[in-house]
Design a protein around this nucleic acid. Structure first.
Lengths: 138, 138
DNA sequence: CTCGAATCATTCGAGCTGTAACGAAGTTCG
DNA sequence: CGAACTTCGTTACAGCTCGAATGATTCGAG
């Protein structure tokens, strides 16, 4: 949560600061089109109709959360729950025309002045390599 | 929230993965001593008695959240609210002996097998430099 | 075919987090 | 002094997230 002890003060804090920056941008873009961050996350992943389960996997959250978020979006007629052909348990979540239009505006907002892009390509590559290595080596 | 578009799939996802790793370790250590992550965050910062405001600043959250978390900790007699000498509005949050003992155990757990430490020092330094630069250059 | 196990989405309960509004207490300035 | 502004912590409300339990459906072993 903070410095993590044992590592010189910084790395942990920097990682949190970087993700906070990304979150802030995403939340601002979501807000600009009238969505919360979670709702925008769902809309973002709905390039095509998805089952609840698959949507949850892509949103990186648990099923109850998907139900919750989809409820809110459905209330506003941005998505609809369709029966799954061939499995009466499952449902398929699809954007409505209004939802698809809003998704376009979301992407337009996201593309506008995204964070962490002031970095030269070489640095970005190096960063990716180091982070990847850190995650692999534990 | 995911790849962020426009950047090759990776950097954003890697940053989220890294912080997720840190969060998971912290939450696991908190759970090991019977605390939630937020409660552990508060206990972690309470090296010395602090006002609600200052505690919130260090926990990186808003005042109502501090009230909420301190309530839970106070219910379990891990912290106590003392009157602030010289300002009858303010309160001073201090660990009880039980809270201090638990804080020791939390630190012991955190020091055990922390994430992202398999990385050589040179890489860690490079990572810090790059992240710092990324945050500065926007 | 049938019964038990697994899977789907949902509901419930709990906890975390933020914004807005509040009352109490302090501070500033006429 | 006293009124206006600020600051402190809290409450109220809304939303996000998860784990556990549930009911409906599907799948698989026998």
């Amino acid at each position: 949560m903070t410095t993590g002890e044992g590592e010189l003060p910084g790395l942990t804090a920097l990682l949190y600061a970087a993700t906070a920056r990304l979150d802030a941008h995403f939340a601002a873009c979501a807000g600009a089109v009238g969505l919360t961050a979670s709702q925008a996350n769902a809309v973002h992943e709905l390039a095509e109709p998805l089952g609840m389960r698959e949507l949850g996997r892509r949103m990186c959250c648990e099923p109850p959360n998907v139900t919750f978020v989809v409820d809110r979006l459905a209330e506003r007629d941005l998505v609809e729950r369709r029966p799954h052909p061939g499995d009466r348990r499952a449902k398929v979540i699809a954007l409505t025309p209004a939802g698809a239009e809003l998704r376009e505006r979301l992407f337009a907002a996201l593309a506008c002045d995204p964070p962490l892009t002031g970095l030269p390509d070489a640095d970005r590559r190096a960063l990716r390599v180091l982070l990847d290595r850190a995650l692999r080596t534990g």
